[in-house]
């Protein structure tokens, strides 16, 4: 199969996946698309939205449509790391005729291929860090034994921005581990009507598997092969640098509202997500437009607002918008020519 054919197949597969998810999830097409970018790019996704917006359902449906092992962890304050990773338990040794016992590793829910970490901010940092370590390393270490997680390993965490009392906000360093942070918006009136129609009748049948484990892995491999031209990489780099309030190229809003900007992981996320976006649309290269499209989900959780930013209610999305306006994608001469052509 040629690269062109692979790209074509990937595009079709993603379209089928979207279609399958769309049969259950009403609207939220952007959210679905962004989640698929995360899946294809091989990163993890943090979903943030109010309760009842279908975050969990989305993940569950996605898991159903993919031929992957799904597990769900409901994060609570008393959830222990071992509840996530698994633990050694004392069991009767079947080989020992004398009835002796032995420790056997009991895998936790992290050993799924699509892991839903529901309300991740409700667990203690200790438990959160156990998950985040697995997300970064794609392995867990229990009692000195390292257990590699099966690929693909895709964590979808959800976060509830309300009812913040008794929650443990994810540290910025750990948020950085998520490739994308997707904001789940409230449905429109029409979408809500459709939701009501679907959820108050008979239960929907189980979704057919549209993408196998190998399919997902090949998508991820294909995504990594998508070439990126240097001007586009430079654009991503300029965007990230401009988000640093200490950088001379930063726009005024960044200098005023931000304490820290996106780092290297932010730039990596931009490129990876852009590659995924290009792939899902069946294109063989990344464009400036891809970078701009993925900028918000890739950068919004990597910027730490300062006092003024929080006091003035400046969201990181507004800052990303400002960055996209401020940072010119093309070289100045080409940009001028473009303006002249307009």
């Amino acid at each position: 199969m040629t690269f062109e054919e692979s790209i074509g197949n990937a595009k079709n597969a993603v379209a089928t996946l979207k279609q399958a998810v769309g049969r259950v999830i009403v609207g939220q097409s952007n959210v679905v698309e962004e989640v698929i970018w995360g899946l294809v790019a091989g990163g993890h996704v943090l979903l943030e939205g109010a309760p009842g917006l279908g975050k969990t359902l989305l993940v569950r449906v996605l898991a159903e449509t993919l031929d992957l092992r799904f597990s769900r962890i409901q994060f609570t304050p008393d959830l222990m790391p071992s509840d996530v990773t698994g633990t050694n338990v004392l069991i009767l040794d079947p080989k020992d005729r004398t009835g002796g016992s032995m420790f056997a590793f009991q895998r936790g829910p992290i050993f799924g291929q699509i892991v839903l970490a529901d309300e991740i901010n409700r667990a203690t940092p200790k438990t959160q860090s156990a998950l985040l370590e697995a997300m970064a390393e794609h392995a867990v270490t229990v009692a000195g034994t390292r257990h590699v997680l099966e690929q693909p390993f895709f964590v979808l965490a959800t976060e509830n921005p309300i009812e913040m009392e008794g929650t443990y906000t994810l540290p910025e360093a750990q948020l950085d581990r998520f490739l994308l942070k997707i904001m789940v918006p409230s449905p429109s009136e029409d979408e809500l009507v459709e939701v009501l129609s679907r959820t108050t009748g008979r239960a929907i049948d189980t979704q057919a598997k549209v993408l196998t484990r190998d399919g997902v892995l090949s998508l991820r491999a294909l995504c990594r092969d998508i070439p990126v031209a240097e001007p586009i990489s430079r654009y991503a780099a300029r965007l990230v640098r401009a988000s640093d309030p200490t950088d001379p190229s930063a726009p005024p809003i960044v200098k005023r509202a931000l304490r820290y900007g996106a780092g290297v992981r932010g730039a990596q996320s931009l490129i990876l997500a852009a590659k995924a976006a290009a792939l899902t649309e069946g294109r063989v290269n990344v464009s400036f437009q891809d970078i701009a499209r993925v900028a918000k989900p890739a950068l919004r959780h990597r910027m730490i607002r300062g006092f003024e930013g929080e006091a003035d209610g400046i969201t990181t999305d507004a800052i990303v918008d400002a960055l996209l306006t401020h940072v010119e994608a093309r070289p100045s001469n080409v940009a001028r020519e473009r303006e002249a052509a307009k």
Binding site: R283, V284, N285, F288, V334
Partner: peptide
């Protein structure tokens, strides 16, 4: 410039 004018998604530059 050509990518921009032809709306080719930077395929020429790449």
């Amino acid at each position: 410039f050509l990518d921009e004018r032809l709306d080719s998604g930077e395929v020429i530059a790449t």
